[in-house]
Design a protein around this nucleic acid. Structure first.
Lengths: 358, 358
DNA sequence: CTTATGTACTATACCGATAAAGAACGAAAT
DNA sequence: ATTTCGTTCTTTATCGGTATAGTACATAAG
């Protein structure tokens, strides 16, 4: 049996194909009775409605938007910050009826989602701006929104004030009297281990901004931190590698009295490493995280960290995307907006004055 | 300027459109030099590769698969069990290069993702089998896989052994000597509160299977539990409403000495309610959860629960889907498989012998 | 009674690709 | 020298819809 299409139904009912199309897509274009008749015939023939792919081609819209994530999706789902972000996007998208397509860097070159999957627009979340996937999206001239990435001319972006937040975190430690402050950060591609030039070693916009913020405050206080760059591993969100990183810093001859961390997850690892060495946080070592991951509240001691409103970021991102799509449809040419959401220092129990000189 | 299509490039280079298509999609069909020339021309004209929608129509495949979730996506992302499941799917899908499209029940009737979004197949996760979204997917004759749903003839399904797991949980309490055992379960649509006929009140396959399992063991021991059905609220994964539910059970004249819970999240709420009343878990009240959510380990006391391997479920689901898609492509007609993954009782610190009669 | 205005459909023309079969031509096999 | 291929392109025929501009007829306005 051949496939049922609009034409099948049209023939059956004795009308033109276009009228059947209208029965489904523009009910006001035909009489109610005829529409009923057509719908009944469709039902009877087991027609499921206009084929989405064909419709997508003819209309130029697919009803789905993509979100491109650097990390393997596996990691994204294991990361509470990422899931909160995605959840907020989903929530914002819901009233629009758009589906959310998760784009991953696949392993085979003949199948590149960013290039091959039909969509109406995409969010680019914390990706290497040079990555090929981003490049494909841009070439397709899809409406895009960059999130946690370096603002790009012509592309709306949503960022948080990483630099200010990081500065606050570092200043907090300085104010408490710390002078030996080290940093555990992360890197996508860069070398693992202690780095000499932390700013140029920071690949990725967020990594760099936070580094700049920390150094703003530390340099002002005349402090030169040792910077350890961990490899954002594919497993376990790097809790272990942070553990290892902290180990190296803590075993230095001149042990730091405080450590600034790129994320709360890393901070967690650092606290563990400290505990393993019999160090008490915050008495012997102060630790500051970033993000205000739910984990930060659960930890013992509760973690001092820099809060970002991830849900707000997600909402803003989705809203920016829908409006970018709208704009590209109407051809309207509003000025591209670059949003910078605030960050805030949350002092909890993982920071204190440095121990009196031993 | 008109849009760049295969034809534009064909004209520019002076070959047929088909040859240009082959240059992108079937490199072995033309000489290397010509291909280079075509690719260069495409690059120059700013062509991003074959239009995904057009290709989807012509080829009949889109490169994306859907996953339908009952819950609003917002909830799914807030639920560690769901995110683990999705993560496992993503991981299994990765080598195939398929993108994952999240389908939600949208609010507007003219835009129904399950009906309107192009995809090659879909996972149906813990949905009401009668829901309209599922119905659309079925009508479209898409390759489907049901997960945590009543097996359906002709549709591959992945389930866990909810009933056995629940029976083990209940038996565990019976073996400890409990005789007053109550249940806090959940319901999508059903009434909220104490229900008289728990089995018929259990909408949803999983809910019913677990209920059957609990009652298997309890009835065998001559125990008739009070069953409280909470409303799976849209907020906070029901921690609060579980709290409320537990309150009602614990304030009964004959207070239970143990409570069986539909999920670990509910169990968490129950423990909180108990604590609020000054009851010690497990001394005054034993509590058993379900799922072995990471939360179960974090809780104090650590929660006795029934473990399911959510990651395995996700892998199995994705694998079943890709093979179903493959099957529908080749027309092969393998027998449909219904997988039942094992569950296992994990005894931790939230269960103990009942308090000696006061 | 002619002219506007709607309503209900139809005709035509794409949307941007791919599949399958055919043509042209040189190289290898008989 | 003739047949048989294989390679490299081209031709033709869809894929299943939608937009836009008609056409036909009925009703209201002038």
């Amino acid at each position: 049996m051949a496939r049922v299409t609009l034409q099948t139904i049209a023939d059956q009912v004795g009308v033109s194909r276009m009228t059947v199309s209208n029965a489904f897509s523009r009910p006001d274009q035909l009489s109610a009775e005829l529409r009923e008749k057509i719908l009944a015939a469709a039902e009877e023939l087991g027609y499921a409605g206009p084929d989405p792919s064909a419709r997508a081609l003819a209309r130029g819209t697919t009803g789905a938007v993509g979100v491109l994530l650097t990390d393997s999706l596996r990691n994204a789902f294991a990361d509470e910050v990422a899931t909160t972000f995605l959840g907020a996007i989903a929530e914002e998208l819901r009233p629009t009826g758009l589906a959310l397509t998760l784009l991953s860097a696949s392993e085979r070159p003949e199948m590149i989602p960013a290039r091959d999957v039909p969509m109406d627009g995409a969010l680019v979340y914390s990706c290497n701006t040079q990555s090929t996937a981003v490049d494909w999206l841009r070439r397709r001239k899809l409406p895009l929104v960059f999130v946690d990435q370096a603002p790009w001319p012509g592309v709306p972006s949503i960022n948080i004030d990483d630099r200010s937040g990081a500065r606050l975190a570092a200043q907090h430690l300085v104010d408490l009297g710390h002078r030996r402050i080290d940093i555990v950060t992360t890197s996508i591609l860069g070398p693992k281990g202690i780095v000499d030039d932390p700013i140029s070693a920071a690949d990725g916009h967020v990594v760099r901004q936070r580094m700049l913020g920390w150094l703003d405050a530390l340099h002002e206080a005349g402090i030169e931190p040792t910077v350890f760059q961990e490899w954002h591993s594919d497993e376990g969100s790097g809790k272990e590698s942070a553990n290892e990183a902290a180990g190296i810093l803590l075993d230095k001859p001149q042990r730091p009295t405080a450590i600034l961390c790129f994320s709360d997850v890393i901070a967690y690892g650092v606290v563990q490493a400290a505990s393993a060495r019999g160090l008490i946080v915050p008495d012997d070592l102060s630790v500051v995280g970033f993000d205000d991951n739910p984990l930060a509240q659960r930890m013992r001691p509760a973690l001092t960290t820099v809060r970002q409103d991830v849900a707000a970021k997600g909402h803003a991102a989705a809203a920016a995307l829908t409006s970018a799509i709208e704009r590209s449809r109407t051809g309207a040419t509003t000025r591209v907006r670059h949003v910078l959401l605030p960050t805030e220092l949350v002092v909890r129990d993982s920071t204190a004055e440095p121990p009196s000189t031993p």
